[in-house]
Structures are given as C-alpha cells and as structure tokens.
C-alpha cells in the first residue's frame, strides 16, 4: 500500500522505496525479563530469598504479612516491598512492626514490573535481608505476566472469593508455587466455598503447588505456612541458583 495516500498501487509505483519483511521471533516481555534477571542476580549475590505475594484486592496479603513477620522477625531479617496504586497505608502497617518497608505506588498501573522493583531495591540493603516479601498490586490478572526476579510466587485465595477462581484466572493460578487459602475463620459463614474444590481446579491447571489453608486472624494454619517459608529459605541457601519456573508469560 502507498504510504502517501493509502492507495493500493504496487510498491514500484512509489519511486525508489521497497518493502521488506524482517523476521524477529522476539518475546514481547523480553525487556522486563532482562531486568528481572538483573534483579534476580542482585538477590542471588546477597543471598536473599524473594517471595512474591499475589491475589485479588482484599484477599489478606497484608494481614498475612503482619501475622508472619511478628513470628518470623525473631529468627530472620525480613523486609517488604509494598505495591499499591495509591496510599502508604499498607507500608504503615508493616512499618509498625519495625520491619524495613518500601511502598511502591504505581499510580494507574495494575501490576508491579521488574523496573519498579529494581528502583525500590535502591532503598534497601539486601545484604542485611534474609527474606524479602513483595506484596504485588491486588489484581488476579496483570501481575501474573510480569517477572520481578522473585524466586517463588504465592497466590492467595480468600474463602469469600469463591472456590472457582483458579478455573477463572488460569494465567494467575498457574504461576503459583504455593496456593494459600486465606480467611479460613470465615469459612463457616461463607457456606459454599470448598477447599477441595479450589484445589481440584488448581490441579486441572497441571499445578503441583502445595495448598495451605490459614487464617491470619485466628492463627489457624500459620505454623504450616511458616514451616513452608523456612523450608524455602533453607533450600535457597543450599541452592543459590534457584530459579522461578513461571515468573512471567512467554
């Protein structure tokens, strides 16, 4: 097609111009993945285990972090990156526990990406951190597609959301290295949420991720979760080159 007027004249009609097809086969996420690899190298050299928490808004990521850090900070040096569209509210809750925290406000962006995380890392001394938790923006869609350099993904599903979410958001739930069923204390009031059904939906995504049901409020299941975190930390220390399997599409 002619560039000047949009007519369908043959290319030779438009003077010396020629067209060419250039084969590329490039991943669209390549730039983010390069940056994520850079972040991962920082984490590896500092010996920091990085856990990325993802869920819909209000599934209880911050509440789980609060309950976790109260215990974990006795044995591990922890820090948190908080991702939100707006406000410092979540960072304030973590700061109240005397845990180093950086709030990343994304404005209108619906996910964290490797560049935002890299920029935030400049505010932390990774050499002084054993475990870094990244609380991603509450969203069951976009964060799944962006590798941050994390070692493992934890996806939370609260019982109030319904047990069919893994089937409805396969891209997100496929990324899970651990599925946490949260707000277990509310289960008697929800009625139609079945933990086994949620797990079955996860299994049909060919996921072998373990499932831990817990309540940050009542404390039920927290021990099992803390054992999982400690196990990951121990394994990452043995194998410093531990890499994430599903850290971003493509």
């Amino acid at each position: 097609m002619c560039v000047d007027c949009g007519c369908s004249g043959p290319p030779e009609m438009s003077g010396p111009q020629k067209t060419a097809s250039v084969s590329l086969l490039q991943n669209l996420h390549q730039q983010n993945q390069n940056l994520a690899a850079h972040n991962r190298e920082h984490f590896r050299s500092a010996g920091t285990l990085v856990l990325n928490l993802m869920s819909s808004p209000g599934a209880g990521k911050t509440a789980l972090l609060e309950a976790t850090l109260r215990t974990l900070q006795k044995t591990c040096r922890c820090a948190v990156l908080e991702g939100d569209l707006e406000t410092e509210l979540d960072a304030q809750r973590i700061r109240a526990l005397n845990i180093p925290v950086i709030q990343i406000t994304t404005g209108s962006a619906c996910h964290l990406d490797a560049q935002l995380v890299h920029k935030a890392l400049h505010g932390l001394d990774l050499a002084e951190i054993d475990i870094l938790f990244i609380e991603n923006v509450g969203n069951l869609v976009c964060p799944a597609s962006f590798d941050l350099g994390q070692h493992l993904n934890i996806v939370l599903l609260s019982v109030t959301e319904g047990d069919d979410k893994p089937a409805k958001y396969p891209v997100m739930f496929r990324t899970a290295d651990l599925l946490v069923i949260s707000k277990l204390d509310l289960l008697p009031y929800v009625g139609d949420f079945r933990v086994d059904r949620a797990e079955n939906f996860l299994r049909t995504l060919a996921s072998r991720a373990p499932v831990i049901s817990l309540s940050a409020r009542s404390g039920a299941g927290l021990d099992e979760w803390l054992v999982w975190v400690h196990t990951q930390k121990a394994e990452s220390s043995v194998n410093k080159d531990m890499t994430v399997e599903h850290g971003g599409a493509g």
């Binding site: 560039v3 010396p16 111009q17 020629k18 067209t19 060419a20 097809s21 250039v22 084969s23 590329l24 086969l25 490039q26 991943n27 669209l28 996420h29 891209v171 599409a249 493509g250």
Partner: peptide, 19 residues
C-alpha cells in the same frame, strides 16, 4: 499456549540496499 511473540515486521525502506 502462553507465548507472546513478535514474529516479524514489514518495513518500507528508503533504498533497496538498506536491508
């Protein structure tokens, strides 16, 4: 099923030799 690939582009070139 999870790929997101930029396969190729078609360009209008200034000179035939530019490719």
């Amino acid at each position: 099923g999870d790929e997101l690939i930029l396969d190729s582009v078609e360009l209008t070139l200034d000179q035939p030799s530019a490719l």
